[in-house]
């Protein structure tokens, strides 16, 4: 299950879809929206995506995980649109025969998602300001370009 959704994520349904009789472990990562960033109070968040590419990249990283570890099933579901503080923004669930593979693959998938998948978070602060989250030219390592 690889999905982007504007509706609240049904965590139980995502976990159920990776369970299989031949697997003995399910590892789950749930990312939730924080109420502060660098000490500033956050009141709401909004996620934007480049949907067709995001789905392609999610499929690709799931394929990479499947190539590295012996896994049962993989689910990656990311929320898009406006969220309140404390809601689940992303769920990754991985099943495998034994726990080590599920733990490692789950960590790999959330790390890759945060580096590669074209999704952007915008935070709405209590002071009224609205900012895109993440690196800026001042904080980012040089990557070529202009």
């Amino acid at each position: 299950m690889i999905q982007l959704t504007s509706l609240p994520i049904d965590i139980e349904a995502v976990i159920d879809c990776v369970k299989a009789p031949e697997t003995g472990a399910v590892d789950v990562f749930i990312g939730t929206t924080r109420d502060q960033t660098a000490g500033r109070k956050v009141t709401a968040l909004e996620y934007e995506t480049y949907e067709p590419m995001a789905l392609k990249v999610m499929e690709r990283v799931a394929g990479e995980a499947g190539g590295r570890w012996s896994l049962g099933r993989i689910a990656i579901v990311h929320r898009i649109g406006r969220l309140n503080v404390g809601e689940a923004s992303v769920i990754i669930a991985v099943s495998s025969a034994h726990r080590a593979e599920a733990f490692e693959a789950c960590r790999f998938l959330i790390d890759k998602l945060k580096q590669e998948v074209p999704i952007w978070k915008r935070e709405f602060f209590a002071d009224g300001s609205v900012e895109w989250s993440g690196q800026t030219p001042e904080s980012a390592p040089a990557r070529g370009g202009l």
């Binding site: 923004s89 959330i110 998602l113 945060k114 998948v117 074209p118 952007w120 978070k121 989250s133 993440g134």
Partner: peptide, 10 residues
């Protein structure tokens, strides 16, 4: 052609 600013999903 898409311009992809630093991503911040998760």
């Amino acid at each position: 052609v898409a311009v992809i600013p630093p991503v911040s999903g998760g």
